[in-house]
Design a protein around this nucleic acid. Sequence first.
DNA 1: CTTGCAGGATTGTTCAACAACTCAGTACCG
DNA 2: CGGTACTGAGTTGTTGAACAATCCTGCAAG
Lengths: 232, 232
Amino acid sequence: MAATDPWVDLLAGDRSLLDRTSTAERVADLLRQRIIEGALPPGTRLSEESAGRALSVSRNTLREAFRLLVHERLLVHEFHRGVFVRVLDADDIVDLYRTRRVLETSAIRHGPRADAERIAAIDAEVTIAEKAAPQERWVDVGTANIRFHQAVTGLLGSPRVDDIMRRVVAELRLAFHVMARPREFHEPYIELNRGIADLLTKGEFTEAESRMESYLDIAEAQLLDAYRQIAR
Amino acid sequence: MAATDPWVDLLAGDRSLLDRTSTAERVADLLRQRIIEGALPPGTRLSEESAGRALSVSRNTLREAFRLLVHERLLVHEFHRGVFVRVLDADDIVDLYRTRRVLETSAIRHGPRADAERIAAIDAEVTIAEKAAPQERWVDVGTANIRFHQAVTGLLGSPRVDDIMRRVVAELRLAFHVMARPREFHEPYIELNRGIADLLTKGEFTEAESRMESYLDIAEAQLLDAYRQIAR
DNA sequence: CTTGCAGGATTGTTCAACAACTCAGTACCG
DNA sequence: CGGTACTGAGTTGTTGAACAATCCTGCAAG
Protein backbone atom coordinates (compact mmCIF):
# COMPACT_ATOMS: atom_id res chain seq x y z
CA MET A 1 0.00 0.00 0.00
CA ALA A 2 1.42 3.36 -0.99
CA ALA A 3 1.98 5.88 1.75
CA THR A 4 -0.17 8.46 -0.02
CA ASP A 5 -3.23 6.81 -1.50
CA PRO A 6 -5.50 9.34 -3.14
CA TRP A 7 -8.47 8.63 -0.87
CA VAL A 8 -6.47 9.31 2.25
CA ASP A 9 -6.43 13.05 1.71
CA LEU A 10 -10.08 12.91 0.77
CA LEU A 11 -11.07 11.36 4.05
CA ALA A 12 -8.72 13.58 6.00
CA GLY A 13 -10.79 16.49 4.76
CA ASP A 14 -13.93 14.92 6.19
CA ARG A 15 -12.29 14.58 9.57
CA SER A 16 -13.84 17.74 10.92
CA LEU A 17 -17.34 16.60 10.04
CA LEU A 18 -17.07 13.61 12.25
CA ASP A 19 -15.32 15.43 15.05
CA ARG A 20 -17.90 15.30 17.74
CA THR A 21 -17.99 18.42 19.79
CA SER A 22 -18.35 18.63 23.50
CA THR A 23 -21.54 19.73 25.18
CA ALA A 24 -19.79 22.86 26.36
CA GLU A 25 -18.98 23.85 22.80
CA ARG A 26 -22.50 23.27 21.61
CA VAL A 27 -23.83 25.29 24.52
CA ALA A 28 -21.41 28.06 23.60
CA ASP A 29 -22.53 27.92 19.96
CA LEU A 30 -26.13 28.22 21.01
CA LEU A 31 -25.53 31.10 23.38
CA ARG A 32 -23.40 32.87 20.79
CA GLN A 33 -26.22 32.57 18.30
CA ARG A 34 -28.75 33.95 20.75
CA ILE A 35 -26.49 36.82 21.66
CA ILE A 36 -25.66 37.95 18.15
CA GLU A 37 -29.28 37.70 17.03
CA GLY A 38 -30.27 39.86 19.96
CA ALA A 39 -32.41 37.40 21.87
CA LEU A 40 -30.09 37.94 24.81
CA PRO A 41 -29.62 41.69 24.83
CA PRO A 42 -26.47 43.34 26.22
CA GLY A 43 -26.51 43.60 29.98
CA THR A 44 -28.52 40.44 30.48
CA ARG A 45 -27.33 38.42 33.41
CA LEU A 46 -26.89 34.73 32.82
CA SER A 47 -27.16 32.93 36.11
CA GLU A 48 -25.50 29.57 36.25
CA GLU A 49 -28.42 27.88 37.85
CA SER A 50 -31.24 29.12 35.65
CA ALA A 51 -29.25 28.82 32.44
CA GLY A 52 -28.11 25.36 33.42
CA ARG A 53 -31.61 24.26 34.24
CA ALA A 54 -32.98 25.76 31.03
CA LEU A 55 -30.43 23.95 28.89
CA SER A 56 -30.27 20.82 31.03
CA VAL A 57 -26.55 20.96 31.49
CA SER A 58 -24.61 20.93 34.70
CA ARG A 59 -23.10 24.06 36.17
CA ASN A 60 -19.62 22.83 35.36
CA THR A 61 -20.37 22.34 31.70
CA LEU A 62 -22.07 25.69 31.54
CA ARG A 63 -19.09 27.35 33.11
CA GLU A 64 -16.86 25.89 30.42
CA ALA A 65 -19.15 27.39 27.79
CA PHE A 66 -19.12 30.74 29.58
CA ARG A 67 -15.34 30.78 29.59
CA LEU A 68 -15.34 30.36 25.85
CA LEU A 69 -17.68 33.28 25.27
CA VAL A 70 -15.94 35.49 27.78
CA HIS A 71 -12.78 34.90 25.79
CA GLU A 72 -14.62 36.03 22.67
CA ARG A 73 -15.72 39.15 24.51
CA LEU A 74 -19.39 38.38 24.04
CA LEU A 75 -19.80 37.89 27.76
CA VAL A 76 -18.13 39.59 30.66
CA HIS A 77 -17.34 37.74 33.80
CA GLU A 78 -17.41 39.56 37.10
CA PHE A 79 -15.90 37.62 39.91
CA HIS A 80 -18.47 36.30 42.34
CA ARG A 81 -21.14 38.28 40.52
CA GLY A 82 -21.83 36.25 37.42
CA VAL A 83 -21.62 36.60 33.66
CA PHE A 84 -23.44 39.25 31.64
CA VAL A 85 -23.94 39.82 27.96
CA ARG A 86 -21.37 42.43 27.08
CA VAL A 87 -22.40 46.04 26.86
CA LEU A 88 -20.26 47.89 24.37
CA ASP A 89 -19.43 51.52 24.99
CA ALA A 90 -18.36 54.16 22.49
CA ASP A 91 -14.69 53.34 23.01
CA ASP A 92 -15.36 49.76 22.02
CA ILE A 93 -17.02 50.89 18.80
CA VAL A 94 -14.06 53.10 17.99
CA ASP A 95 -11.62 50.29 18.66
CA LEU A 96 -13.62 47.76 16.65
CA TYR A 97 -13.62 50.06 13.65
CA ARG A 98 -9.94 50.72 14.15
CA THR A 99 -9.38 46.99 14.01
CA ARG A 100 -11.60 46.65 10.95
CA ARG A 101 -9.60 49.32 9.16
CA VAL A 102 -6.42 47.38 9.79
CA LEU A 103 -7.87 44.11 8.57
CA GLU A 104 -9.96 45.27 5.66
CA THR A 105 -7.57 47.75 4.12
CA SER A 106 -4.71 45.28 4.46
CA ALA A 107 -6.86 42.72 2.69
CA ILE A 108 -7.63 45.06 -0.21
CA ARG A 109 -4.00 46.02 -0.44
CA HIS A 110 -3.25 42.33 -0.75
CA GLY A 111 -5.89 42.07 -3.47
CA PRO A 112 -3.50 41.90 -6.44
CA ARG A 113 -2.09 38.67 -5.10
CA ALA A 114 -5.44 37.15 -4.16
CA ASP A 115 -7.26 34.35 -5.97
CA ALA A 116 -9.87 35.48 -8.49
CA GLU A 117 -12.53 33.35 -6.85
CA ARG A 118 -12.11 35.22 -3.60
CA ILE A 119 -12.97 38.44 -5.37
CA ALA A 120 -15.95 36.73 -6.96
CA ALA A 121 -17.09 35.71 -3.48
CA ILE A 122 -17.12 39.35 -2.44
CA ASP A 123 -19.24 40.27 -5.43
CA ALA A 124 -21.65 37.44 -4.67
CA GLU A 125 -22.44 38.80 -1.23
CA VAL A 126 -23.29 42.22 -2.63
CA THR A 127 -25.62 40.56 -5.11
CA ILE A 128 -27.39 38.74 -2.30
CA ALA A 129 -27.97 42.02 -0.51
CA GLU A 130 -29.18 43.67 -3.68
CA LYS A 131 -31.80 40.96 -4.11
CA ALA A 132 -32.95 41.03 -0.49
CA ALA A 133 -33.36 44.81 -0.28
CA PRO A 134 -36.36 45.24 -2.61
CA GLN A 135 -38.13 42.55 -0.60
CA GLU A 136 -37.47 44.49 2.58
CA ARG A 137 -35.64 41.55 4.13
CA TRP A 138 -33.39 43.79 6.19
CA VAL A 139 -32.09 41.05 8.40
CA ASP A 140 -30.81 39.24 5.32
CA VAL A 141 -29.37 42.47 3.99
CA GLY A 142 -27.51 42.94 7.24
CA THR A 143 -26.18 39.40 7.16
CA ALA A 144 -25.03 39.73 3.56
CA ASN A 145 -23.37 43.00 4.41
CA ILE A 146 -21.41 41.39 7.19
CA ARG A 147 -20.48 38.49 4.97
CA PHE A 148 -19.32 40.98 2.37
CA HIS A 149 -16.78 42.34 4.79
CA GLN A 150 -15.72 38.89 5.87
CA ALA A 151 -15.20 38.05 2.21
CA VAL A 152 -13.00 41.13 1.91
CA THR A 153 -10.71 40.05 4.71
CA GLY A 154 -10.89 36.59 3.15
CA LEU A 155 -8.73 37.99 0.34
CA LEU A 156 -5.76 37.45 2.60
CA GLY A 157 -6.39 33.71 2.62
CA SER A 158 -5.41 33.58 6.26
CA PRO A 159 -7.28 31.28 8.64
CA ARG A 160 -6.14 33.38 11.57
CA VAL A 161 -7.30 36.64 10.07
CA ASP A 162 -10.61 35.01 9.19
CA ASP A 163 -10.96 33.96 12.78
CA ILE A 164 -10.11 37.40 14.09
CA MET A 165 -12.61 38.95 11.72
CA ARG A 166 -15.29 36.50 12.81
CA ARG A 167 -14.88 37.65 16.36
CA VAL A 168 -14.77 41.33 15.50
CA VAL A 169 -17.99 40.94 13.59
CA ALA A 170 -19.67 38.99 16.37
CA GLU A 171 -18.72 41.71 18.80
CA LEU A 172 -19.99 44.41 16.49
CA ARG A 173 -23.36 42.72 16.30
CA LEU A 174 -23.74 43.56 19.96
CA ALA A 175 -23.65 47.20 18.92
CA PHE A 176 -25.91 46.86 15.90
CA HIS A 177 -28.84 46.09 18.16
CA VAL A 178 -28.99 49.72 19.23
CA MET A 179 -29.95 50.63 15.67
CA ALA A 180 -33.69 50.86 15.84
CA ARG A 181 -34.35 51.28 12.12
CA PRO A 182 -32.83 48.39 10.15
CA ARG A 183 -33.61 49.96 6.80
CA GLU A 184 -31.80 53.22 7.44
CA PHE A 185 -28.90 51.28 8.87
CA HIS A 186 -28.47 48.73 6.12
CA GLU A 187 -29.82 50.09 2.86
CA PRO A 188 -27.31 52.88 2.18
CA TYR A 189 -24.39 50.51 2.45
CA ILE A 190 -25.47 48.24 -0.37
CA GLU A 191 -24.51 50.86 -2.91
CA LEU A 192 -21.16 51.48 -1.24
CA ASN A 193 -20.46 47.77 -1.20
CA ARG A 194 -21.39 47.50 -4.87
CA GLY A 195 -18.93 50.23 -5.68
CA ILE A 196 -16.13 48.55 -3.79
CA ALA A 197 -16.90 45.14 -5.26
CA ASP A 198 -16.83 46.55 -8.80
CA LEU A 199 -13.53 48.27 -8.20
CA LEU A 200 -12.05 45.06 -6.86
CA THR A 201 -13.31 43.15 -9.88
CA LYS A 202 -11.72 45.71 -12.17
CA GLY A 203 -8.48 45.46 -10.24
CA GLU A 204 -8.56 49.07 -9.05
CA PHE A 205 -7.37 48.26 -5.59
CA THR A 206 -6.07 51.66 -4.57
CA GLU A 207 -9.40 53.31 -5.21
CA ALA A 208 -11.20 50.39 -3.57
CA GLU A 209 -9.10 50.88 -0.48
CA SER A 210 -9.93 54.54 -0.09
CA ARG A 211 -13.60 53.75 -0.64
CA MET A 212 -13.41 51.19 2.10
CA GLU A 213 -11.82 53.74 4.40
CA SER A 214 -14.67 56.14 3.88
CA TYR A 215 -17.20 53.33 4.21
CA LEU A 216 -15.81 52.53 7.63
CA ASP A 217 -15.73 56.19 8.64
CA ILE A 218 -19.37 56.61 7.71
CA ALA A 219 -20.53 53.43 9.39
CA GLU A 220 -18.60 54.21 12.54
CA ALA A 221 -20.01 57.72 12.70
CA GLN A 222 -23.55 56.49 12.23
CA LEU A 223 -23.15 53.91 14.95
CA LEU A 224 -21.58 56.37 17.37
CA ASP A 225 -24.38 58.76 16.62
CA ALA A 226 -26.96 56.16 17.51
CA TYR A 227 -25.04 55.50 20.69
CA ARG A 228 -25.12 59.13 21.69
CA GLN A 229 -28.87 59.19 21.16
CA ILE A 230 -29.26 56.37 23.61
CA ALA A 231 -26.91 57.73 26.22
CA ARG A 232 -28.71 61.04 26.19
CA MET B 1 -19.52 65.91 45.33
CA ALA B 2 -18.74 66.45 41.66
CA ALA B 3 -19.54 63.66 39.29
CA THR B 4 -15.94 63.47 38.10
CA ASP B 5 -13.60 63.90 40.99
CA PRO B 6 -9.98 63.50 39.94
CA TRP B 7 -9.30 60.55 42.22
CA VAL B 8 -12.18 58.55 40.79
CA ASP B 9 -10.41 57.89 37.51
CA LEU B 10 -7.23 57.17 39.40
CA LEU B 11 -8.82 54.44 41.44
CA ALA B 12 -10.68 53.09 38.45
CA GLY B 13 -7.28 52.42 36.93
CA ASP B 14 -6.26 50.38 39.96
CA ARG B 15 -9.39 48.29 39.67
CA SER B 16 -7.66 45.56 37.73
CA LEU B 17 -4.99 45.15 40.39
CA LEU B 18 -7.51 44.30 42.99
CA ASP B 19 -9.62 42.19 40.70
CA ARG B 20 -9.06 38.82 42.14
CA THR B 21 -8.74 36.23 39.46
CA SER B 22 -10.15 32.78 39.51
CA THR B 23 -8.04 29.73 40.10
CA ALA B 24 -8.65 28.66 36.54
CA GLU B 25 -7.17 31.88 35.22
CA ARG B 26 -4.13 31.62 37.41
CA VAL B 27 -3.64 28.03 36.34
CA ALA B 28 -3.95 29.15 32.72
CA ASP B 29 -1.39 31.91 33.31
CA LEU B 30 1.02 29.45 34.79
CA LEU B 31 0.60 26.90 32.03
CA ARG B 32 0.92 29.62 29.38
CA GLN B 33 4.16 30.71 30.95
CA ARG B 34 5.53 27.19 31.00
CA ILE B 35 4.51 26.62 27.43
CA ILE B 36 6.01 29.77 25.97
CA GLU B 37 9.23 29.32 27.88
CA GLY B 38 9.49 25.82 26.51
CA ALA B 39 9.23 23.87 29.74
CA LEU B 40 6.25 22.10 28.24
CA PRO B 41 7.41 21.35 24.70
CA PRO B 42 4.97 21.02 21.80
CA GLY B 43 3.32 17.64 21.67
CA THR B 44 3.32 17.15 25.43
CA ARG B 45 0.18 15.57 26.70
CA LEU B 46 -1.39 17.17 29.73
CA SER B 47 -3.46 14.60 31.52
CA GLU B 48 -6.19 15.99 33.68
CA GLU B 49 -5.39 13.83 36.61
CA SER B 50 -1.64 14.28 36.83
CA ALA B 51 -1.76 17.98 36.03
CA GLY B 52 -4.54 18.48 38.54
CA ARG B 53 -2.66 16.59 41.22
CA ALA B 54 0.54 18.47 40.48
CA LEU B 55 -1.14 21.84 40.78
CA SER B 56 -3.55 20.83 43.50
CA VAL B 57 -6.63 21.89 41.64
CA SER B 58 -9.68 19.87 40.83
CA ARG B 59 -10.28 18.42 37.41
CA ASN B 60 -13.13 20.84 36.80
CA THR B 61 -11.00 23.87 37.47
CA LEU B 62 -8.22 22.49 35.35
CA ARG B 63 -10.61 21.92 32.49
CA GLU B 64 -11.64 25.56 32.64
CA ALA B 65 -8.00 26.55 32.35
CA PHE B 66 -7.49 24.17 29.44
CA ARG B 67 -10.43 25.73 27.61
CA LEU B 68 -8.80 29.12 27.84
CA LEU B 69 -5.52 27.93 26.42
CA VAL B 70 -7.16 25.91 23.69
CA HIS B 71 -8.91 29.10 22.66
CA GLU B 72 -5.52 30.81 22.49
CA ARG B 73 -4.27 27.97 20.30
CA LEU B 74 -1.52 27.07 22.73
CA LEU B 75 -3.17 23.74 23.43
CA VAL B 76 -5.16 21.47 21.20
CA HIS B 77 -8.04 19.48 22.54
CA GLU B 78 -8.81 16.10 21.05
CA PHE B 79 -12.12 14.72 22.07
CA HIS B 80 -11.82 11.86 24.53
CA ARG B 81 -8.09 11.89 24.06
CA GLY B 82 -6.92 14.83 26.08
CA VAL B 83 -5.12 18.13 25.58
CA PHE B 84 -1.68 18.52 24.08
CA VAL B 85 0.73 21.40 23.72
CA ARG B 86 0.21 22.58 20.20
CA VAL B 87 2.60 21.45 17.49
CA LEU B 88 2.90 24.09 14.79
CA ASP B 89 3.44 23.01 11.23
CA ALA B 90 4.90 25.00 8.34
CA ASP B 91 1.45 26.25 7.33
CA ASP B 92 0.99 27.74 10.77
CA ILE B 93 4.28 29.59 10.49
CA VAL B 94 3.30 30.98 7.13
CA ASP B 95 -0.07 32.10 8.44
CA LEU B 96 1.38 33.64 11.56
CA TYR B 97 3.77 35.72 9.49
CA ARG B 98 0.95 36.64 7.14
CA THR B 99 -0.95 37.91 10.16
CA ARG B 100 2.07 39.76 11.46
CA ARG B 101 2.51 41.50 8.11
CA VAL B 102 -1.06 42.73 8.31
CA LEU B 103 -0.70 44.01 11.84
CA GLU B 104 2.80 45.41 11.78
CA THR B 105 2.70 47.15 8.42
CA SER B 106 -0.69 48.64 9.25
CA ALA B 107 0.76 49.92 12.47
CA ILE B 108 3.71 51.57 10.74
CA ARG B 109 1.42 53.07 8.13
CA HIS B 110 -0.55 54.53 11.02
CA GLY B 111 2.68 55.90 12.47
CA PRO B 112 2.18 59.52 11.42
CA ARG B 113 -0.91 59.72 13.60
CA ALA B 114 0.65 57.89 16.57
CA ASP B 115 1.78 59.41 19.85
CA ALA B 116 5.46 60.24 20.05
CA GLU B 117 5.86 58.25 23.24
CA ARG B 118 4.75 55.11 21.46
CA ILE B 119 7.58 55.52 19.01
CA ALA B 120 9.95 56.10 21.90
CA ALA B 121 8.75 52.83 23.42
CA ILE B 122 9.79 51.02 20.25
CA ASP B 123 13.24 52.54 20.40
CA ALA B 124 13.58 51.57 24.04
CA GLU B 125 13.10 47.89 23.29
CA VAL B 126 15.84 47.93 20.69
CA THR B 127 18.14 49.56 23.20
CA ILE B 128 17.44 46.81 25.69
CA ALA B 129 18.36 44.19 23.12
CA GLU B 130 21.51 46.07 22.20
CA LYS B 131 22.62 46.02 25.82
CA ALA B 132 21.82 42.37 26.37
CA ALA B 133 23.58 41.09 23.26
CA PRO B 134 27.22 41.78 24.28
CA GLN B 135 26.50 39.96 27.51
CA GLU B 136 25.26 36.96 25.56
CA ARG B 137 21.89 37.07 27.30
CA TRP B 138 20.10 35.63 24.29
CA VAL B 139 16.88 34.92 26.12
CA ASP B 140 16.63 38.58 27.04
CA VAL B 141 17.49 39.55 23.48
CA GLY B 142 14.68 37.37 22.24
CA THR B 143 12.23 38.84 24.71
CA ALA B 144 13.19 42.40 23.80
CA ASN B 145 12.85 41.52 20.16
CA ILE B 146 9.33 40.30 20.69
CA ARG B 147 8.48 43.34 22.74
CA PHE B 148 9.86 45.49 19.95
CA HIS B 149 7.28 44.08 17.59
CA GLN B 150 4.52 44.42 20.14
CA ALA B 151 5.52 48.04 20.55
CA VAL B 152 5.23 48.47 16.79
CA THR B 153 1.67 47.22 16.69
CA GLY B 154 1.14 49.35 19.77
CA LEU B 155 1.38 52.37 17.47
CA LEU B 156 -2.23 51.74 16.56
CA GLY B 157 -3.28 52.39 20.15
CA SER B 158 -5.84 49.64 19.88
CA PRO B 159 -6.48 47.32 22.83
CA ARG B 160 -7.90 44.70 20.49
CA VAL B 161 -4.92 44.75 18.17
CA ASP B 162 -2.62 44.56 21.17
CA ASP B 163 -4.51 41.53 22.33
CA ILE B 164 -4.37 39.87 18.92
CA MET B 165 -0.65 40.54 18.71
CA ARG B 166 -0.11 39.09 22.17
CA ARG B 167 -1.65 35.85 21.04
CA VAL B 168 0.18 35.75 17.74
CA VAL B 169 3.44 36.21 19.59
CA ALA B 170 2.62 33.54 22.15
CA GLU B 171 1.83 31.14 19.36
CA LEU B 172 5.03 31.98 17.55
CA ARG B 173 7.03 31.16 20.65
CA LEU B 174 5.93 27.61 20.16
CA ALA B 175 7.85 27.66 16.91
CA PHE B 176 10.90 29.45 18.22
CA HIS B 177 11.79 26.45 20.33
CA VAL B 178 12.88 24.57 17.25
CA MET B 179 15.70 27.07 16.85
CA ALA B 180 18.62 25.32 18.40
CA ARG B 181 21.07 28.22 18.30
CA PRO B 182 19.65 31.27 20.06
CA ARG B 183 22.48 33.51 19.02
CA GLU B 184 22.14 32.91 15.30
CA PHE B 185 18.42 33.34 15.63
CA HIS B 186 18.34 36.54 17.61
CA GLU B 187 21.51 38.52 16.99
CA PRO B 188 21.05 39.46 13.34
CA TYR B 189 17.67 41.01 14.02
CA ILE B 190 18.92 43.58 16.48
CA GLU B 191 20.46 45.56 13.66
CA LEU B 192 17.34 45.33 11.56
CA ASN B 193 15.25 46.49 14.48
CA ARG B 194 17.60 49.40 15.08
CA GLY B 195 17.21 50.46 11.49
CA ILE B 196 13.44 50.35 11.67
CA ALA B 197 13.34 52.17 15.00
CA ASP B 198 15.56 54.95 13.68
CA LEU B 199 13.42 55.37 10.59
CA LEU B 200 10.31 55.60 12.73
CA THR B 201 11.95 58.18 14.95
CA LYS B 202 12.86 60.23 11.90
CA GLY B 203 9.33 59.93 10.59
CA GLU B 204 10.31 57.98 7.49
CA PHE B 205 7.40 55.63 7.69
CA THR B 206 7.31 54.44 4.11
CA GLU B 207 10.89 53.22 4.25
CA ALA B 208 10.28 51.74 7.70
CA GLU B 209 7.38 49.79 6.31
CA SER B 210 9.34 48.20 3.52
CA ARG B 211 12.14 47.38 5.95
CA MET B 212 9.60 45.66 8.16
CA GLU B 213 8.34 43.67 5.20
CA SER B 214 11.78 42.38 4.45
CA TYR B 215 12.43 41.73 8.14
CA LEU B 216 9.38 39.50 8.24
CA ASP B 217 10.34 37.76 5.01
CA ILE B 218 13.77 36.96 6.38
CA ALA B 219 12.56 35.78 9.76
CA GLU B 220 9.88 33.62 8.20
CA ALA B 221 12.33 32.05 5.80
CA GLN B 222 14.80 31.30 8.57
CA LEU B 223 12.12 29.71 10.70
CA LEU B 224 10.76 27.62 7.84
CA ASP B 225 14.28 26.55 7.08
CA ALA B 226 14.77 25.33 10.61
CA TYR B 227 11.49 23.49 10.33
CA ARG B 228 12.56 21.68 7.22
CA GLN B 229 15.73 20.60 8.96
CA ILE B 230 13.69 18.97 11.67
CA ALA B 231 11.17 17.34 9.40
CA ARG B 232 13.95 15.81 7.36
C1' DC C 1 -0.37 -9.67 8.89
C1' DT C 2 -4.86 -8.37 9.80
C1' DT C 3 -9.08 -8.58 12.53
C1' DG C 4 -11.78 -8.91 16.76
C1' DC C 5 -12.17 -8.65 21.41
C1' DA C 6 -11.34 -7.89 26.37
C1' DG C 7 -9.49 -4.91 30.10
C1' DG C 8 -7.63 -0.91 31.93
C1' DA C 9 -7.03 3.92 31.73
C1' DT C 10 -8.66 8.56 30.53
C1' DT C 11 -11.94 11.86 29.38
C1' DG C 12 -16.98 13.80 29.46
C1' DT C 13 -20.55 15.06 32.36
C1' DT C 14 -23.30 15.30 36.28
C1' DC C 15 -24.25 15.93 41.08
C1' DA C 16 -23.78 17.37 45.82
C1' DA C 17 -21.49 19.89 49.15
C1' DC C 18 -19.28 23.71 51.24
C1' DA C 19 -16.56 28.02 51.24
C1' DA C 20 -16.37 32.76 49.64
C1' DC C 21 -18.55 36.47 48.28
C1' DT C 22 -22.30 40.03 46.84
C1' DC C 23 -26.36 42.39 47.67
C1' DA C 24 -30.43 44.14 49.76
C1' DG C 25 -32.66 45.03 53.76
C1' DT C 26 -32.63 46.37 58.59
C1' DA C 27 -31.35 47.96 62.87
C1' DC C 28 -28.58 51.19 65.06
C1' DC C 29 -26.54 55.72 66.10
C1' DG C 30 -25.46 60.42 65.93
C1' DC D 1 -33.03 62.32 58.73
C1' DG D 2 -28.53 60.56 56.88
C1' DG D 3 -25.18 57.50 57.36
C1' DT D 4 -22.94 53.15 59.21
C1' DA D 5 -22.59 48.40 60.52
C1' DC D 6 -24.51 44.08 60.40
C1' DT D 7 -27.18 40.11 59.16
C1' DG D 8 -29.07 36.70 56.18
C1' DA D 9 -30.43 35.01 51.71
C1' DG D 10 -28.82 33.98 47.31
C1' DT D 11 -25.11 33.31 43.92
C1' DT D 12 -20.70 32.05 42.49
C1' DG D 13 -16.02 29.43 43.26
C1' DT D 14 -14.09 25.09 43.95
C1' DT D 15 -13.76 20.55 45.24
C1' DG D 16 -14.50 15.51 45.20
C1' DA D 17 -16.87 11.58 43.87
C1' DA D 18 -19.41 8.99 40.73
C1' DC D 19 -20.66 6.95 36.38
C1' DA D 20 -20.97 6.76 31.26
C1' DA D 21 -18.53 7.06 26.96
C1' DT D 22 -14.49 6.54 24.64
C1' DC D 23 -9.70 5.40 23.55
C1' DC D 24 -5.63 2.51 23.78
C1' DT D 25 -3.02 -1.70 24.46
C1' DG D 26 -2.23 -6.30 24.15
C1' DC D 27 -3.53 -10.76 22.97
C1' DA D 28 -5.78 -14.38 20.62
C1' DA D 29 -7.84 -16.15 16.41
C1' DG D 30 -8.07 -16.49 11.60
